[in-house]
Design a protein around this nucleic acid. Structure first.
Lengths: 221, 221
DNA sequence: TTAATTGGAGAGCAGTGCTCTCAAATTGGT
DNA sequence: ACCAATTTGAGAGCACTGCTCTCCAATTAA
């Protein structure tokens, strides 16, 4: 079973999600194709296993990076989280693509299995915001303060309640933007959207972007 | 030929890039599978046609949205561009995913065909920055001004030269972040990364994010 | 020792991309 | 109008895919 996931992971890295073939996995396993159906119901279930596996690998990467930073260094934590996501994505582009790229057509990840591992990173990000907020290290940002629509305000209330995150609407808006933007810049790099040779030092560019994103939510070095 | 692209587009929307089958296209065309190989060399070439088609559709969407905004209303232009990208992505998730999602494994888009249409949106974005800059409508933003590495500074010089965009390093950094972040938030929505029912009014959230991104580069309403 | 469960083998179906050969239709030149 | 050249489609075929089925050997439990 673990062997199947291990081989599947390798195939995923080599041929991508679309090229993931149960028959090929069976071959590598030294077994006939029908045999793997004893362990995995179908291709989608193998995909789910790999999705969960990927979320956990990324989550552990992020957790490990955070452990190396002092508890009260919120900027350091934010930076470590961002860098960990980027580095994992660049090291494992296929797995990253499976998690954050275009959804595999016809495949719907079962929430009861993928939600928990899938929220590890945003969970840590929220934890950082929370810590900074409680420590008074979250500098209020000035800027456009358009009133949210009623629906949006209600959504924010729900988020606040669920996460126990006492941030006002403007800060929540900024927090969500930072979250999406972080994965936006990583996407651009991993998926090669910048163009082949535009940036010779993408790590430096990413660090500069992390700085700006930290400023966006009010986390200061 | 156009018929093939048209049917391919429909299949793409229905079954995604991975499920794009030349045989199925042939069936819909009322022709035997080998016949389409007269017009399209292989599956990858059909994919390229669809990529180009998609970039152009998005580009035209953006151009049309920009045409409705006065030339000197840079914030309005930025907003129109952002909204056009978002709306096109939500209306055409499969095509959007083909362009901005995980790369199709084993498929490499030929730059000589895809670069031109693929740079239409960023081209317009640069044009907006340029116009605002020349009109003096680009308010300098304060914030972390870490010195770029030598490699990054050289990259910025190259970008400046190629685009004729007289922005300093800090503004360029912000511009690139806004670009990537814009697609980041659209990705999150189109690919459903926010979770199923977190935001009931995503358009309002997106507008708030657009405001923040405009502020990031110094474009003010 | 016997019965029950488990794991794999093999055949088979329908689908895929792609290549080949062959015949029909269309076109162009005289 | 005729003939040759070209274009276009049909059909067979190969190797691959996901998945289901039946059958048999190995392992485990009673």
């Amino acid at each position: 079973m673990e062997e199947i996931v291990r081989i599947g992971r390798r195939h995923l890295a080599l041929h991508g999600a679309a090229g993931l073939s149960l028959r090929a996995v069976a071959r590598d396993l030294g077994v006939v194709s029908s045999a793997v159906y004893r362990y995995v119901k179908n291709r989608d279930e193998l995909l789910t296993l790999l999705v969960v596996d990927g979320y956990n690998a990324l989550g552990e990467s992020v957790d490990a990076a955070l452990k190396a930073v002092p508890d009260d260094d919120f900027y350091g934590q934010f930076q470590a989280l961002g860098r960990a996501v980027r580095e994992w994505g660049l090291a494992e582009p296929a797995r990253y693509g499976l998690l954050f790229g275009s959804p595999v057509p016809g495949y719907q990840a079962p929430p009861e299995q993928t939600t928990a591992p899938g929220t590890r990173v945003i969970g840590q990000l929220v934890r950082i915001f929370q810590g900074a907020q409680q420590a008074g290290a979250l500098v209020a940002q000035s800027g456009p303060a358009g009133r949210p629509t009623d629906a949006l305000a209600a959504d924010f209330n729900a988020v606040r309640a669920e996460l126990g995150l006492p941030l006002d609407d403007a800060s929540l808006t900024r927090g969500v933007l930072v979250w999406a933007a972080l994965f936006g810049v990583v996407n651009f790099e991993v998926f090669g959207q910048y163009g082949p040779a535009t940036f010779s030092d993408p790590a430096a560019l990413f660090d500069a972007h992390l700085q700006l994103l930290a400023q966006m939510v009010g986390i200061t070095p």
